[in-house]
Amino acid sequence: MRITVTVDGTKYSDDVEPRQLLVHYLRERLGKVGTVVGCDTSNCGACTVHLDGHSVKSCSVLAVQADGSEVTTIEGLARDGQLHPVQQAFHDNHALQCGFCTPGMIMQSIDLLADDPDPDETAVREGLEGNLCRCTGYQNIVRAVRDAAAKMSGGAGPEAERVGESQQVAGGGN
């Protein structure tokens, strides 16, 4: 089947097997190996990307289902060499160790901040319940998300992903 998908701002048109998972399309066809596969049952969340502005587990979406959609991966967050504030916060708060869960954690964190720009600790923990990390015990991840929230004013999600608007997002204040 022929699909057309915009991934990290670039439009791709490809023939794919209907059974191809979105995550495999991203990794194997587009070389977007920043998005990883951690399980078979959509429990771990490592493959989280944004599909039309909302977080999804790309192992549980078929590439054909993404036809006509916009996908943002971890590789599409930084703008002009500047990290997304959530990426920066993960670094600043030592919110990763091995880093395998990190792309999915960051993508889900951005989504959660889009829905709730000022989450308390419980809200962050619940917002990340679909993402597993085996290294950090989550404490610094929670801290990073709240730190990012404090530094972002314009919200996250689709806003933060729009090319050219990263300054506003990173800027703080209203």
């Binding site: 969340g45 599909l51 999804v56 587990k57 889900q108």
Partner: peptide
């Protein structure tokens, strides 16, 4: 139900 990503789909 499940988690936020699953609830989106």
């Amino acid at each position: 139900v499940a988690d936020p990503q699953v609830r989106h789909r």
